[in-house]
Design a protein around this nucleic acid. Sequence first.
DNA 1: GGCCGACCTGA
DNA 2: CAGGTCGGC
Length: 342
Amino acid sequence: MQHHAVLSALTTVWRSIPCSRSELNLDVVLSCGQSFRWKQINPSHWTGVLASQVWTLTQTDDHIWYTTYCLDGEENVDLVGLESQNMEPKQSATSAHRELKIERERRGCCKNTVDAEISCMGKTVTVNPSNNFIFVKSKKTEDDCDKVGRKKQDILMDYFQLNVELESLYKQWGKEDLHFRRVAQEFPAPDVEERLKNLGFGYRAKFVNQSAQTILEKHGYDWLVSLRCVPYEDARTMLRALPGVGAKVADCVCLMSLDKTEAVPVDTHVWQIAKRHYLPHLGSDNKTLTDRLYKEIGNYFHNLWGPYAGWAQSVLFCSDLKKFQSPKTDEVTRQKKRRKLY
DNA sequence: GGCCGACCTGA
DNA sequence: CAGGTCGGC
């Protein structure tokens, strides 16, 4: 939600319509060169004129959010002070202020002030761009209609034709048309990597996105599941061809998702366990877990435990986690350590 | 083929 | 600083 500080700071002045990104992607639709009245005033926040009003639109995964600015200054009852935590509310409000000023000048009622008062969806927002404060005054009644009584929600529904189900149309168009299917895969979410990054995926965001693209374009939707019926080594080889998928991740997918019970994922913990209890000769000489080491450890466990080696490995792995170690075990370890000391 | 730094976040 | 993969050496 870091791109929606405005939403979280001023929830009272925003209204929403349920709508998924696959039905309408504002960033794509408003910048694709077929409409010229919208400006991106902040990341993913679009301001423009529609039905004689200034609007700001933005969206989350399942809603379109909208707010409008009008010129009537009716009396207010409540006063709420809000100090914004970062620059975004200020910037957005300042942009709204600018839009209002332009609209006022256009109508020849130039009342230029530093502190602008803007009526927003039944609330009046006082903006002071110089000190980053925003005040919201509530009106007694909130209406969601424009001057001629048209519901604002209906204006947007009509403008974006939200009553037409785009997803089923895409399915229909793609059914016989391979080229459309390919093109359509780039939509509805061209910002996947960015959004994954915002979710904390870090440098892996690029890999996840690229792998997903590769799977859809090269292999098709059912390919991953079909690997359940392919021998372990083959499934592993194909998985490792995906960007960001190395030996360990491929083995994890094989073991956890593709029924390959013999797959033994070797991460640093399993490596430590192997050195401590099974293969002491791997000792401290080896600094990094190379492909050769990985194979040696995997083969060793496979020979030791047989076709369900992966399951056995996960038992050892879990028992090595601190949260599964009983206090009793800890006491035994401490006693051993004490014995060693003396 | 092996080694190591870069990538990014959370702890 | 750990966590796994990649690319350059």
